[in-house]
Amino acid sequence: MSKVVLITGTSTGMGKLTAITLAKAGYKVIAGMRGTTGKNQLAAGELNAIPNIEVAELDVTNDASVNNAVHQVLDKYGKIDVLVNNAGLSGFGVIEGYTIDQVKSLFEVNFYGVLRTYQAVLPGMRAAKDGLIINLSTGASGFTLPFMVPYMASKFAMESLIEGFQLELKPYGIENVSIPSGVYPTEMTNGTKTGVNADKPEILADYGEEASDRFGAMGQALFGKMADFNMNPQTIADGILELIEKPKGTRPLRFPLDAVALGADQEFIDARANIKDKWAKNYGFNL
Rank of each mutant, 00 (worst) to 15 (best):
M226V: 15
V94K: 13
P51S: 07
K39D: 13
Y98I: 04
R34C: 10
K281M: 10
I133H: 02
V177W: 03
E187A: 07
N68K: 10
K76P: 06
A87H: 01
A227Q: 07
S212K: 14
L257M: 02
I179L: 00
N232C: 06
L17A: 04
I275C: 08
P123E: 08
I7Y: 05
A127I: 15
L83M: 11
L22K: 08
I95W: 11
T21Y: 14
R126Y: 13
V70E: 03
A157M: 03
Q266F: 07
P180I: 02
G182S: 06
G224V: 08
T194A: 12
L257D: 03
G219Y: 06
K200M: 13
P150A: 03
I203D: 08
A127M: 12
N40I: 07
E245R: 04
G239E: 10
E46R: 03
V260W: 01
T186I: 11
L136Y: 11
F268W: 14
G216V: 15
K170Q: 13
Q266P: 01
D59N: 04
G208H: 11
K246A: 11
L262S: 12
L253G: 08
A56D: 00
S65L: 01
G13F: 04
D101E: 14
N190W: 13
D238L: 07
F147S: 01
D199K: 04
Q41K: 14
G45Y: 14
S105K: 05
P123T: 05
K246W: 09
L47C: 07
I236Y: 01
Q220V: 06
T138L: 07
G13Y: 01
N110R: 00
R254L: 00
G38P: 08
Q119H: 11
N190H: 14
T10H: 06
G284K: 01
V109F: 04
K278S: 07
G15Q: 03
K170C: 14
G93I: 11
Q72V: 12
A56N: 05
A31N: 04
N85V: 10
A280L: 06
P51M: 08
E245G: 02
Y283I: 13
G131Y: 02
K104M: 06
V260E: 09
E209D: 14
N197H: 09
T8N: 05
A153D: 10
P180W: 00
F229Q: 05
P252R: 00
E202Y: 04
L83T: 10
L42F: 11
D130E: 10
K39M: 15
V177S: 10
L145A: 08
G88N: 05
M125S: 00
L115H: 09
V183H: 05
T138I: 13
L243D: 00
I174Y: 01
E54F: 08
V183F: 12
Q72G: 14
A23W: 09
Q234N: 12
K276F: 13
G124F: 14
M33H: 04
V73W: 03
E210K: 12
A64N: 09
F165Y: 09
A64V: 12
L204N: 13
T99A: 09
T8Q: 10
P146N: 02
Q166R: 07
N274D: 15
I100D: 13
V73N: 08
P123I: 11
D258H: 03
